[in-house]
Simulated scan of single mutants.
Amino acid sequence: MTICSKCYYDNNYPEITFDKNNVCNYCIQIESLANEYGTGREKGIKKFQQIINEIKVNQKNKKYDCVVGVSGGTDSSYMLHLLKEEYKLRVLAVHYDNTWNTEISTRNIYAMINKLNIDLITHVVDNKEADDILKSFFMSGVAEIDGPTDLAVAFVLRTAAKKHGIKYIFEGHSFLEEGITPLTNNYFDGKFIESIHKKFGEMKMQNYPLMTFRKFVTSIIFDRVKLIRPFWYINYQKEMAIEFLSKNYDWKYYDGHHLENRMTAFYHLIYLPKRFNKSLKINTIAAKVRNKAISRKQAEELINKEDKASKDIEVYFKKRLNLSDNEYGYYMGAPLKNWKDFPNDKKKFEIMRPLFFVAQKFNLVPKSFYLKYCFKK
């Protein structure tokens, strides 16, 4: 077995390669991104300040400077503080409620916006429709069970930005803290979501904010909203952010990455590990080893540590979707499916790659999106 000399990945990790010094391609990619964006260094801080200055000039006659998607999690909560208190931006917070929020996440959202005096828009999907969509993905056997939520969040943010004349959306991703997911993992688009729901769902899709390929491209060409990821430029450490938020706001940690939402928690803690023998927490753990925050021995302990919330989340999932133990067991053990097994718009993204190449150069789509969606797999 070959193990990366910088992080925790070994040669069982998808699409991994190693150089002559046993450094994996993911570490090399992260180092390349850090150099390109100047992450945490003077270069990155200057670049980000230039973005802030541009926003203040271009949005001066508008009510808001930017949109921030909020979930009650660490990254989005800290970003609210950062943009409002340190960079003095007029922030509009936007939340997509798939009705699977934990009490902690809702509490954290209001703790932040109330103390910072930030306006909030919440799009609440019909809970029965949301459950029908999510159940259809569970029945389909694909890995992307949380895809409908992720796509809805993106569309709701773009819709809010367009309505209020805002040209900047901030996202809380950090490749240093979270690592990079293999490009072949998890694909979804509007047509993919619609086709799975049509085959396995029982209700009509009416309230769910479906972002089709046409709506997405129209938004890019005509709305020209820039997607900014502050943590790609400035120094950001999640553990320090957790400590800061807990100390300075009425904010509570939820004991794990992405565990502020019950569906996302099910996806991370149970569905991927038990159904597909995969775990996304290895990305975060490998990042900690790469950053020298923990040792390899500590990483192994974290990988093997059983999450306390797993049992409760599984019980909640079955009850919420009205699944008997037999039904749940059947679908968890059914043949696995791939995104290629259902109609999707992947070919359209590949054909229109030149458009998305230009779009990512101007921050109209993330670079990671361009690499993942616009090349053949």
Results as ranks from 00 to 15, higher is better:
2 T>L: 12
4 C>D: 11
5 S>H: 12
7 C>K: 08
11 N>I: 06
12 N>P: 06
14 P>M: 08
15 E>S: 12
20 K>G: 01
21 N>Q: 13
22 N>Q: 13
29 Q>L: 12
30 I>W: 03
31 E>M: 06
37 Y>P: 11
45 I>P: 00
45 I>M: 13
47 K>N: 12
47 K>E: 09
63 K>Y: 04
64 Y>S: 10
64 Y>E: 05
69 G>C: 12
78 Y>K: 12
80 L>H: 12
84 K>N: 06
86 E>Y: 14
91 V>D: 07
92 L>G: 04
94 V>W: 02
97 D>R: 11
98 N>C: 08
99 T>H: 08
100 W>G: 04
102 T>F: 06
104 I>N: 11
105 S>W: 05
108 N>E: 06
110 Y>I: 13
111 A>N: 13
114 N>R: 15
115 K>R: 14
120 L>R: 13
125 V>K: 00
126 D>A: 13
129 E>T: 14
133 I>E: 00
141 G>F: 01
142 V>D: 02
142 V>K: 02
144 E>S: 02
145 I>V: 11
146 D>V: 05
155 F>S: 01
166 I>C: 11
167 K>N: 02
169 I>R: 00
172 G>T: 06
174 S>Q: 11
175 F>C: 12
180 I>T: 12
183 L>M: 09
186 N>P: 04
189 D>L: 05
191 K>R: 07
195 S>T: 03
195 S>G: 00
206 Q>H: 09
212 T>Q: 02
214 R>F: 03
218 T>F: 02
219 S>K: 09
219 S>F: 10
232 W>K: 13
232 W>T: 04
236 Y>W: 05
239 E>R: 14
241 A>L: 00
241 A>S: 13
242 I>Y: 01
247 K>C: 09
248 N>G: 08
249 Y>S: 07
249 Y>R: 10
252 K>T: 11
253 Y>Q: 08
254 Y>P: 07
272 L>V: 03
273 P>A: 10
274 K>D: 04
278 K>V: 12
279 S>K: 14
281 K>F: 08
281 K>T: 03
282 I>F: 15
283 N>C: 12
286 A>M: 07
288 K>R: 10
288 K>P: 07
289 V>Y: 06
293 A>Y: 13
294 I>A: 01
304 N>V: 10
308 K>T: 04
312 D>V: 15
312 D>A: 15
318 K>P: 03
319 K>D: 04
319 K>L: 07
320 R>F: 07
320 R>T: 09
322 N>D: 06
323 L>C: 04
324 S>K: 09
324 S>G: 01
333 G>M: 00
342 F>A: 05
342 F>P: 04
346 K>A: 03
346 K>Q: 06
348 K>S: 07
350 E>I: 14
350 E>G: 03
352 M>E: 11
355 L>E: 11
364 L>M: 09
364 L>N: 01
368 S>C: 02
373 Y>F: 10
374 C>T: 09
376 K>N: 14
377 K>Q: 07
